[in-house]
Write a protein that binds this DNA or RNA. Structure first.
Length: 1033
RNA sequence: GGUCGAUUAGCUCAGUGGUAGAGCACUGCAUUGACAUUGCAGGGGUCACUAGUUCGAACCUAGUAUCGACCACCA
């Protein structure tokens, strides 16, 4: 006999280990079976399991277990992402906390070694947590994006794209994170609205020139006309004025037409040398916004960058990598003089020249960017270049109001680094880019043509929206942790061995092949033997030593230096569906498991990952898409619909739901080692704030079932612990039902042949089981996990436990050996099918029940899915048991209505019963008497006087409880029912009386309604009769 | 500004044109026979609003209101 209760702690980890040891997670590699692959969204190596992961992986596991049971060759590909910035951040922080050197003084190699050390010790917590959840991943094939083979795939992908011109290096304006001192992609920038200011300044015209400034209203009437010697500019970032290259106005803006082409002065910096910049026209400025004139700072604003590129305006970079005003280069006066000549068109310029020019006036050099802003504003204002307005707070006539500098307080959108949280700075730097536009085209087509489908499908709009407006993808990161860019630079040289300090890139899959390329190149160029070595640190920057000639034999020595940058983490993630299967080798895994069946992920990762996998997969796998379906699931929120966040204190840790959280055992929990040590206290605190008393250990099954039951398409999940408790109870119910079966010696491992069953009860339950199986299968196939969970839940609890088990009791406790044996067999058989049916949702408890109900040689996990045929359904049995259920329910309901004591046994007669009903009475008398607590249950001609009546189908059920009832109350009870019936009947009559309905509605609907009306009228007649008899009393 | 979504019972949510549902909460009754992590019975809804399409609308269409998410934004 199994234990009285299911204790998750006693079974979950034990069973998981059994599966793992037996190799249950491995693909069958059965070539006759259909292959089925899901690649896990590789969690960050720094990650620990949160509710989103729990949902994501529960869904994948349900699909994998379901398809595995259906006989497919399943690989659920697990692994982890090296997560460049996140990991580097964690390790750097740890180094700092333990008083170590920072990474720069430590050096690249030593630092990376530290990260690997950290990875071995603390990384990958999440994989063990996934095991706690029951994830049936193919662990033996676990991959890490920085593994040797995956790194080789990354390099190959890079080289191939480079050779096709789809990867290129360019100086462009990119998002720069001043904290991490690296470029990041657009996607890693979060735009947030913050309180900001917009300052209005006057840029004086060169040489004190003046013009007539005229403003007109919509009808062309002049509203303002004055002589000005300046142009008014509005800006939210005054510190960038130092890098202005022009002022732009819209070509149609008549106000400024007189001064277009003239020069104006940037009103900041040393008075003796104010820089002059041209006033130009461009389509970009909106004449209706601000003053209509825009300062153009090409190196510090994305819009300005476009204008500057169009207009050939120089873009002066003002800041260093840390977001401080530049302090390098020549002093301001010298540089500004050059800039002046450029602005006046008197001197040519090129990118390199501009890049070297530091136009930050001496007094601002080295200031942090926000300090610089304050200083610039103060200086300009002090000097009287702020636009002045009448103080709006002043109550008097406008003319009397004092003038104050015009500064608007307004909400502005500001970019923040999603990891660092600091304000992102647009910076002009050399970076590597992927031509995403070209790669996106076939990826868009794949979805348009339905080769890859989004579920729910409306997400394709989001995908198109982004893909059709995709920007070049900046893939280089100025970090150390990641795939180093496979590019080596040699010195730019001429045939005589002369160098100019420039570099020549060699792109190759590894160092060795790059050296071969370098050697070939220089030998051809120089016509002499060439030896190649990697540039040692001590020579870095000393370009004169990069190419040297041996005076003795005339051979050359070339030093090459690998690009110091690493690739965006998502570059390697984009290759995940095929790099994990061994690409570029044509492995069996690759052949079988690409393309995958379904990608399961949350919407926030569509751009980051799904889009990139689509582009890369199609590119490298001969146009074959990486997966057929993309199932986009919900975001898990707290029960009030708020996003779970540590600061809100509403985080629920999935592992806490599995293991329980006890208010007093904080210490105990920390020793489980399931969380990152440095993270654990915070999570504890957050959960405990919300659940001060803690909560029970609900087990992985309860959590999984809850998530599945709530996983409706296209809606967020508001998770409540109560709900988890509810589904834990469901597991308990199944457990105790199995105990019941064991108690009555149910015959497990015994086949059932539907056609040889003698009892309607058994024919009925296997028919119900058949329906349930069909519903669950269809729902999972259709990604309706909530429907699948509901169908199983309802069948097990409401049909199997509440009815079948109760109905079977008289037989199991009775004397008829043959009947008893049939029930023992069907009971066990149905339970076994239930275990199978629930296994994808609740793998642990079902496997535990499987192993403990018989001596078994197999795992439930590897059994065949119960795909029952329609032959299991028997309509006669269904009708018969349907009648039994109705009859019992009706009698129970009446008993409760008229307050018959629960223990009292009541005699009941059945009036006007048909022959068929009479046969049912004979067949099921015992069980009905037992379940409805009857003293007798017989067919009769007439109802005894003083009985309480209800109607089941054609028959009136009379409860002989004259002594218990009050005639008045009984009349009231019947009237209430009649009232309800009457309302429904009227509605039906009205509908059926409507010719249009009868004429236009489908015939079966009309027939159905007619039948229903007839039924209701029959019931009404019988109840009315009963009422009439009572009234006579 | 663009896109997507939500509004159904006290709460959290299912429900793709034909009798409004679940879980939790609530009320009454039931405790030595699988299960109190239970059983039986019950109360509770103008399906946000307006108009339309339809024989028929929670569901389709248009609009309104409120809430939310994402993307892009005026220097």
């Amino acid at each position: 006999m199994i234990d009285q209760r299911f204790d998750p702690k006693a079974h979950e980890q034990r069973i998981y280990q059994r599966w793992e040891e037996a190799g249950c997670f491995r693909p069958s590699m059965d070539t006759s079976a259909e292959a089925y692959a899901i690649v896990i969204p590789p969690p960050n190596v720094t990650g620990s399991l949160h509710m989103g992961h729990a949902l994501n992986n529960t869904i994948q596991d349900i699909l994998c277990r379901f398809e595995r049971m259906r006989g497919k060759n399943v690989r659920w590909q697990p692994g982890m992402d090296h997560a460049g910035i996140a990991t580097q951040m964690v390790v750097e922080r740890q180094l700092a906390a333990s008083g170590n050197q920072d990474r720069r003084s430590m050096g690249r190699e030593a630092f990376i070694e530290k990260v690997w050390e950290w990875k071995e010790q603390s990384g990958g917590t999440i994989l063990n947590q996934l095991k706690r959840l029951g994830a049936s991943c193919d662990w033996e094939n676990t991959k890490f994006t920085l593994d040797e083979d995956l790194s080789a795939a990354v390099n190959k992908a890079f080289v191939d794209l480079y050779n096709e011109g789809l990867i290129y290096r360019a100086k462009r304006l990119v998002n720069w994170d001043p904290q991490f001192q690296t470029a990041i992609s657009n996607l890693e920038v979060e735009n947030k609205e913050v309180d900001g200011h917009m300052w209005h300044f006057k840029y004086p015209l060169a040489g004190g020139e003046t013009y007539t400034y005229v403003e007109k209203d919509a009808d062309g009437n002049v509203t303002l006309e004055e002589t000005r010697d300046y142009i008014s500019i509005a800006t939210t970032r005054p510190e960038t004025m130092l890098g202005d290259g022009a002022v732009a106005v819209h070509p149609s803006d008549e106000r400024y037409a007189p001064i277009v082409g003239k020069l104006c002065e940037i009103p900041v910096g040393p008075k003796e040398f104010r820089r002059l910049i041209p006033i130009i026209t461009d389509e970009y400025p909106d004449p209706d916004f601000g003053s209509g004139a825009v300062k153009i700072t090409g190196a510090h604003d994305f819009n300005d960058y476009q204008v500057a590129k169009r207009g050939g305006i120089p873009m002066y970079a003002l800041m260093d990598d840390k977001g401080y005003m530049r302090a390098d280069g020549e002093d301001y006066a010298a540089v500004a003089a050059v800039a002046q000549r450029i602005a006046e068109g008197k001197e040519d310029f090129d990118e390199a020249k501009i890049a070297a020019m530091n136009l930050v006036p001496d007094q601002y050099r080295g200031l942090e960017r926000f300090e610089a802003r304050n200083a610039v504003v103060a200086d300009i204002t002090a000097e009287g270049h702020a636009v002045m307005i009448a103080d709006p707070k002043h109550k008097d006539e406008e003319t009397d109001a004092p003038l104050i500098p015009y500064v608007e307080n307004k909400k502005i959108m500001q970019p923040f680094g999603d990891r660092s949280g600091v304000v992102i700075e647009p910076m002009l730097t050399d970076q590597w880019f992927v031509d995403a536009e070209t790669l996106a085209k076939p990826a868009i087509a794949a979805v348009r043509e339905g080769r890859t489908k989004f579920v729910p499908e409306n997400w394709d709009r989001t995908y198109y929206n982004w893909m059709e407006n995709i920007e070049p993808w900046c893939i280089s990161r100025q970090l150390w942790w990641g795939h180093r860019i496979p590019v080596w630079y040699g010195p730019m040289a001429d045939a005589s061995g002369g160098t100019d300090g420039g570099v020549m890139p060699f792109v190759a899959e590894n160092e060795k092949s790059s050296f071969t390329k370098v050697k070939e190149y220089y030998e051809q160029l120089l016509g002499a033997p060439v030896k190649v070595s990697l540039l040692p640190d001590r020579l870095r920057g000393k370009t004169e030593f990069y190419l040297t000639k041996d005076i003795d034999d005339g051979s050359y020595h070339v030093y090459v230096d690998q690009d110091p940058d690493v690739l965006d983490t998502w570059f390697s993630s984009g290759l995940w569906p095929f790099s994990t299967q061994g690409w570029p080798e044509q492995t069996d895994g690759l052949k079988a498991f690409y393309p995958g069946a379904t990608l399961v992920t949350a919407f926030d990762i569509i751009f980051f990952w799904v889009a990139r996998m689509m582009m890369m997969g199609i590119k490298f796998m001969d146009g074959e898409i990486p997966f057929k379906d993309v199932y986009i699931h919900a975001i898990v929120r707290d029960e009030a619909g708020k996003k779970m966040s540590k600061s809100e204190g509403n985080v629920i840790d999935p592992v806490d739901l599995i293991d329980g959280i006890d208010a007093d055992s904080l210490v105990d929990k920390r020793t489980t080692g399931l969380r990152q040590p440095e993270k654990a206290p915070q999570v504890e605190k957050a959960t405990r704030k919300r659940y001060p008393k803690g909560f029970e250990a609900y087990g992985a099954d309860a959590l999984r079932f809850t998530l599945a039951a709530m996983a409706t398409k296209g809606r967020d999940i508001n998770l409540s612990v109560d709900r988890v408790a509810g589904y834990r109870n469901f597991g308990s119910k199944l457990w105790s039902a199995t105990r019941f079966a064991q108690m009555y010696e149910a015959k497990f491992e015994t086949p059932v042949n539907p056609s040889s069953l003698g009892l309607a009860l058994n024919q009925w339950i296997i028919g119900e089981l058949y329906k349930c199986c069909a519903d669950v299968s269809e729902a999972i196939e259709d990604y309706r996990f909530n429907d699948a969970a509901d169908a199983a839940y309802h069948f097990v609890w409401d049909v199997f436990c509440d009815w079948y088990l109760e109905l079977s009791k008289p037989i199991l406790q009775g004397d008829d050996g043959a009947e008893k044996e049939e029930v023992q067999t069907v009971l066990a058989w149905t339970l076994e099918r239930i275990f199978e049916l629930l296994h994808p949702f609740m793998p642990f408890i079902t496997e535990a029940l499987w192993e403990q109900t018989a001596t078994r040689s197999d795992f439930l996990m590897l059994r065949k899915w119960p795909g029952l045929s329609e032959g299991y359904h028997n309509q006669d049995a269904a009708d018969e048991l349907g009648w039994v259920l109705k009859t019992v329910s009706q009698i129970r309901s009446v008993r409760a209505d008229v307050n018959v004591p629960a223990g009292a046994k009541v005699p009941v007669s059945l009036i006007d019963a048909s022959a068929k009903t009479a046969r049912c009475v004979e067949a099921h008398r015992d069980v009905i008497m037992r379940l409805a607590r009857l003293e007798k249950f017989d067919v009769a001609e007439t109802a005894p006087t003083g009985s309480v009546k209800t109607v089941v189908d054609e028959a009136t059920v009379a409860l002989e409880i004259a002594d218990l009832i009050d005639a008045k109350e009984e009349v009231a009870r019947l009237d209430k029912q009649l009232g309800k019936l009457g309302g429904e009947i009227t509605g039906l009559e009205k509908r059926l009386g409507n010719d249009a309905f009868v004429a236009k509605a489908p015939a079966e609907v009309v027939a159905e309604q007619r039948e229903r009306l007839a039924d209701l009228q029959g019931t009404q007649a019988k109840l009315s009769q009963a009422r009439a008899q009572l009234a006579d009393l």
